[in-house]
């Protein structure tokens, strides 16, 4: 009860602050828009498809997973700024739930991601993408889970490192290989076998496959439940670990 109340307090406060800064929206939407308008047409020959609409069916799911990963993985920077300003320390001397400080912030990240994702899908539909509503909602659920996992991870790590200078290279080192082997921008259909084996170990590769199946209108595909299990399990583990690290870091 107290946890839910505190989480709501933190979440609504963070939302309020975020909405005051429209920059996040512009950056978060304009960038993917560039991908949609400038990059997707290039893909037509590579993907062997005739129309933009077909290219979007393959490309938009990857773009969404990309967004979920990068939108959430770097949120720790904000926490470091808060640590430096003394805001976290001030919260810590109150009886507020420690876990709520983490979850409230992560939920804000999830909401902002879902908003961006919805905007992109709407725009892509405007350009000819066709996809079922339920399939999109299922895909969004997957992305919400990814976002929760990575933002919790990011907060826990940044609390340990407490410095932007250490956080930036670490996150880049983690995110680059994950991104490249997830088949995000292009499906791994053309990848050599060894690369596919590597990708099997990348949970985001599973997620991308799942989201692609949903956008292809095939929610019953194996890749969908597999994505749910892989991402859901990993999120559970990460959130438990992160909240422990967080609780220890902010005691």
């Amino acid at each position: 009860m107290k946890f839910l109340r505190d989480t709501w307090l933190v979440f609504s406060r963070q939302m309020q602050l975020m909405l005051r800064q429209p920059v996040w929206l512009i950056v978060g939407v304009v960038q993917p828009l560039f991908y949609l308008l400038l990059f997707a047409p290039l893909l037509k020959p590579a993907l062997g498809v005739q129309t933009n609409a077909e290219a979007y069916k393959l490309f938009v799911p990857g773009l969404l997973v990309l967004l979920a990963m990068f939108g959430s993985l770097f949120t720790g920077f904000g926490l470091i700024a808060e640590l430096r300003a003394g805001v976290i320390e001030r919260s810590r001397v109150t009886p507020v739930s420690r876990l709520a400080l983490l979850v409230g912030r992560s939920l804000r990240d999830v909401v902002s991601l879902l908003f961006q994702a919805a905007l992109i899908v709407v725009i892509a539909v405007g350009f000819g993408l066709s996809v079922g509503l339920l399939d999109v909602l299922a895909a969004f659920a997957l992305m919400a889970i990814i976002s929760l996992m990575l933002s919790a991870f990011s907060y826990a790590i940044s609390l340990k490192l407490r410095s932007e200078d250490a956080l930036a290279p670490l996150l880049n080192t983690i995110s680059q290989p994950l991104l490249l082997t997830a088949g995000i921008l292009l499906p791994l259909t053309f990848a050599p076998t060894w690369l596919k084996r590597v990708a099997d170990w990348n949970p985001f590769s599973w997620a991308t496959d799942g989201v692609r199946a949903l956008f292809a209108g095939d929610p019953g595909a194996d890749s969908v439940w597999q994505a749910a299990v892989v991402v859901g399990g990993l999120t559970l583990i990460t959130v438990v670990w992160a909240s422990r690290a967080f609780a220890k870091g902010v005691r």
């Binding site: 602050l17 005051r20 800064q21 808060e82 300003a85 001030r90 919260s91 001397v93 109150t94």
Partner: peptide
Amino acid sequence: RRRIGYVAQGGSTWDESTAREELVLQARF
């Protein structure tokens, strides 16, 4: 924690908030 207040040496305000918002949130914590 419930019985004390603490004001840190380095300050504790968030640039983008107003004093009133910070005070209300702090009380609600």
